[in-house]
Nucleic acid binder design. Structure first.
Length: 269
DNA sequence: GCGACAG
DNA sequence: ATCTTGTCGC
């Protein structure tokens, strides 16, 4: 009895896991109850017909956090917003740099990155920006997570905003593996499809793997974050993909990295 | 038991 | 996440 706990603690130390992991898991289980896994927003997707009485989806946001190589605790969070109706033009960008001591632990990404992103969203809301995103794409998974509550869902609940999870790599859960998914995508019956459902061994649907660009063998992994169904999430991803990674995420990624470079060099001098 | 494990 | 230029190909 006693030995089991001691061994777990030792292993946790070897992995340099923070001692709060148990609490973190509890927090995830609690917040997960607030997740809304269906469409729950006032706008509609752009369509050929005109429904003049309902607002259309126009502003799609993207968030990401970059880190400095030489100063691993130095982080830069970014929030960008693109205009879906003007060739995904950038209409808003903001950044926050700070030192982060919370480590990255698989399955607990939100405890490292969510606070910065919540800050950026709150700042934008307080400033009453007319470009506040109607939906937010997050660099990380939503439901596609060991406890069904990844960064995209976590951020969606904390900031109460519709979110979509975008993973560039698969978090292996419920029997799902990156090689297994790629085999499915390459299978004859799926040759025509660019999207396949990620159904785990348990039968649960965690998200979807999609070839966002023609000719890209490596898929991106889309999952429900908050207040957006998987079908709608896939449609929105398709509307925002010029390259493999959807533009909101790609722009947030590129720009947070260059912002960090610019600011960090200034600190060393 | 060992390995895998979003960013 | 981060280290990194050129390069092969449509």
């Amino acid at each position: 009895m006693e030995g089991v706990n001691e061994n777990e603690k030792e292993e946790a130390q070897k992995r340099s896991d923070p001692p709060e992991l148990g609490k973190w898991a509890e927090i995830q289980d609690t917040l997960k109850k607030s997740v809304i896994a269906v469409d729950d927003f006032p706008w509609r997707l752009p369509s050929p017909q005109s429904h003049s009485h309902q607002q259309q989806l126009t502003y799609v946001g993207g968030v990401d956090v970059s880190f400095s190589k030489e100063e691993p605790s130095m982080a830069c969070g970014s929030l960008v917003v693109l205009d879906l109706h003007h060739d995904l033009r950038l209409v808003y960008q903001d950044y926050t740099c700070l030192t982060l001591d919370v480590p990255y632990v698989p399955g607990f990404l939100a405890f490292r990155e969510a606070p910065i992103l919540v800050h950026l969203l709150e700042k934008m809301k307080n400033d009453a920006s007319p470009f506040y995103p109607q939906v937010l794409m997050v660099d990380g998974n939503g439901l596609l997570h060991p406890r069904g509550f990844g960064l995209a869902s976590h951020l969606g609940v904390l900031a109460n905003i519709p979110t979509i999870g975008i993973g560039k790599n698969l978090h292996h859960i419920d029997g799902l593996t990156q090689s297994g998914v790629r085999k499915l995508l390459e299978a004859e019956e799926n040759r025509a499809n660019d999207v396949i459902t990620l159904r785990g061994s348990s039968g649960f649907i965690w998200g979807a793997a999609m070839r966002s660009t023609q000719g890209s063998l490596k898929p991106v992994f889309v999952s429900i974050g908050h207040r957006v169904s998987l079908d709608t999430a896939i449609k929105i991803v398709n509307m925002t993909c010029k390259f493999r990674v959807p533009e909101p995420i790609r722009q947030a990624d590129i720009r947070s990295r260059e912002h960090l470079r610019k600011h960090h060099i200034g600190m060393l001098a």
